[in-house]
Design a protein around this nucleic acid. Structure first.
Length: 356
DNA sequence: CATGCGTGGCG
DNA sequence: TCGCCAAGCAT
């Protein structure tokens, strides 16, 4: 193996210089030039963006961020919102516990902190839906506290620069310590965003653009010729296949029979079609209302984090006076398929109404 | 502490 | 078509 002991440890200043020239523009971001001029970001908007960005791409977050901050410009506005409105606005973004915690957090800030976000890592960490990453990101970006920000980008950059061969998640403490060793006292917020920009645009999972990297002469994995092999990860489990039945009942006045799912668990708190459990064996029929159910030809296919789902969709037209055993009828003018989680919208899209 | 928890894009 | 992946958190 090549002797890498002579490779200099990377300097945060080098990355910050790169960030000054290449920072990506985002709706929630205060750019490096503005930031140097003394402009501070709105903690509410930083927190909102960070929660949305948890395990989610910038491209997907953009429109949701604009929608949320337009509807609810301040944390007090969000705190006063109805649960169903927030869940409906979040529909399609995934990981719905984030939306429930977002609202809980806004209400906690309004009630316990007089509508002003706490300003330290330690206090931020107490908020619902705010873990080590988000607390550090808000503390550093919104308040310039030199907190140690460790997300997937940072893990990837650190594992390559320092050639960490331990697979994740075991490597997490080591990578966190390495990240801490580089976190500067000066401009910690810009530095945190710089590492994430580097990971997103240069130090990418596949085909990293090492030639353009400001730390190219400090990266042990690059000097070894193996940056794309890092970080190593423990093998994942295979996703089982499950099946289920969804019942889409439309009343003659156009109202749809829907139900709000339980607060916890899969798609918790979201609106959905009544149906069977989703199981690996044959699903047990469970029609929510007496009707002449017709099975659609196509099935709705969807993959969740930990299983594949194939959903058989049944439809029926029911008379006004018929009472459902589960769920409630939502008037046609209040029904918007965009307020459904994606699997439920896919089922709707298979119906005659959904295709028109 | 391993597991549950979405979605869309990309190679 | 398919596995991997993206600014993680709660339990």
């Amino acid at each position: 193996m090549r002797d890498t002991s002579a490779i200099p440890v990377p300097k945060p200043e080098t990355l910050l210089d790169w960030y000054d020239r290449h920072a990506r523009k985002m709706p929630w971001r205060v750019g490096p030039a503005e930031r140097k001029a003394g402009v501070m970001p709105d903690p509410y908007r930083i927190w909102m963006s960070e929660v949305m960005l948890q395990q989610t791409t910038v491209a997907a977050v953009r429109e949701y961020f604009l929608k949320f901050t337009d509807k609810w410009p301040r944390v007090s506005d969000l705190a006063a919102a109805a649960d169903a409105d927030v869940m409906a606005a979040w529909a399609g973004l995934g990981y719905y516990a984030r939306a429930r915690n977002l609202l809980k957090c806004a209400r906690a800030v309004a009630a316990d902190y007089d509508g002003v976000f706490p300003q330290t890592y330690a206090d931020l960490l107490k908020l619902p839906g705010v873990g080590p990453y988000t607390a550090a990101a808000v503390a550093s970006i919104a308040y310039d506290e030199p907190a140690v920000v460790v997300d997937g980008n940072v893990e990837r950059v650190m594992s390559r620069v320092f050639n960490v061969l331990t697979p994740l998640p075991d490597a997490k403490p080591e990578l966190t310590a390495l990240a801490a060793s580089l976190t500067p006292q000066d401009r910690p917020g810009d530095y945190a965003q710089a590492v994430m920009d580097l990971g997103a645009t240069i130090c990418t999972p596949r085909n990293p653009a090492c030639g353009l990297c400001p730390w190219r002469d400090n990266c042990v994995a690059r000097l070894q010729g193996t940056p794309a092999e890092l970080p190593r990860k423990k093998p994942k489990k295979v996703k089982p296949k499950r099946r289920g039945i969804a019942y889409i009942a439309r009343r003659v006045d156009g109202a749809y029979l829907l139900e709000t799912r339980p607060e916890s668990g899969l798609l918790g708190g979201m609106l959905g079609w009544p149906g069977s459990d989703w199981t690996e064996s044959d699903p047990t029929p469970a029609p929510p209302i007496r009707a002449e159910w017709k099975t659609l030809n196509a099935e709705a296919r969807h993959t969740f984090t930990h299983f594949h789902l194939s959903l058989t969709v049944l439809t029926a037209l029911v008379p006004m006076e018929r009472q459902p055993e589960r769920g409630e009828f939502i008037p046609a003018e209040e029904f918007d398929p965009k307020s459904l989680p994606t699997v439920m919208r896919k089922a709707y899209d298979l119906t005659d109404s959904g295709r028109t």
